[in-house]
Amino acid sequence: MTDDSRPAPTFQGRLQLDSFMFNASAATVGPRRSPRLSTNSSTAARPPASSKISPARAITKRKASTQADDSVGADDDIGDISSPSSSSSTASRTKRPRQKSGYAPPSVYAHLPHLPDAIAPNLLIFFIGLNPGIQTARTGHAYAHPTNLFWRLLHSSGITPRLVSPTEDRQMPALYSLGLTNIVSRPSRNGAELSKAEMDAGVAILEEKVRRWRPEVVCVVGKSIWESMWRVRHGRAIKASEFRYGWQDEKENMGLVEGVVQKEEEKEEGVVYGADWKGARIFVATSTSGLAATLKPKEKEEIWKELGEWTVKRRAERAAATAAAVMVERN
């Protein structure tokens, strides 16, 4: 028996989907918009002008900040910049004024001691430096600043079989027949604080030291030292075409003073004062200071390597001569 009270079957469902279908006749022209945008744009709330930064202004601000950071050098006092919350710390950064490089009288560093020579008879090489730096004077050891390449170049070139510490500078004559002195004895921060007059005055003192101790070779550690020696010897500045690193002509040998005879009281024990001595040959090496950046480290090594090769050969010859002398004595 059928129940006629039930509705007829249909595919409409309870949601009446026909009411949700798109009706082209009722559609409005143009894109649909959100109801919240239908209000008048003039009445819409806008952020304050002061809080809005244009892209161009933002780029300019970033660029200015970068330039300020780049202007701060490694040795400049930039304060504590570890706290990102402090915006005033960046603005307060100021570049410490660089110290002007120029002549400084001896009174400026009169409180610093002078550095004694490391010298002895029968030296293979007598190194002539410019003058003691501040750290060298304070520590009392030659080429003591960590950026100075002197001790590293001695080792890499073969002049010393191992890396020597600045604290061993007084032992160099006994260890490796190497001596140390300077053309100017007083300390200064750099070579620019010395005058040409006091450098030139040191040349005669160097000549006397070489004539008295008679090393085989004098190594001039730096171009400016050789320029001063040339100026005194030749009465004029050296020309660019005349300067060269490495071995110099034998006519430039050091310690030979024409017409001067070594007095007995000026002679040092252990030094052989033969009449056939032709003076100490000069080798001009590069400056080893960390401030001297004219030549690249590789170029400096190549120049010093030439002196190192001679040193290794000459040291072997000396050792062979000593061994032969011992054999003669035994026989």
Rank of each mutant, 00 (worst) to 15 (best):
S5R: 15
S5M: 03
S5I: 01
A8D: 15
A8E: 10
T10N: 10
P31H: 12
S34N: 10
T39N: 05
R46P: 00
A49C: 14
S50A: 14
I53D: 09
D69Q: 11
D75H: 08
G79E: 02
D80Q: 11
P84E: 00
S88R: 07
T90E: 06
R98D: 07
Y103D: 03
P106D: 06
S107T: 07
V108M: 11
Y109N: 13
H111F: 03
P116A: 04
I128W: 00
N131R: 02
I134T: 14
L153I: 10
H155S: 02
L163E: 13
P166S: 12
T167I: 12
D169R: 13
R170P: 04
Q171A: 12
P173W: 00
T181P: 08
E198R: 01
E208K: 06
E227R: 00
H234Y: 14
K239Q: 11
N253G: 06
E258I: 04
G259I: 01
V260L: 02
V260T: 09
E264C: 05
K267M: 15
V272G: 12
F283N: 02
S289R: 09
W304C: 06
K305S: 03
E306D: 09
L307E: 04
V312D: 00
K313I: 07
E317C: 09
A324T: 09
A324L: 09
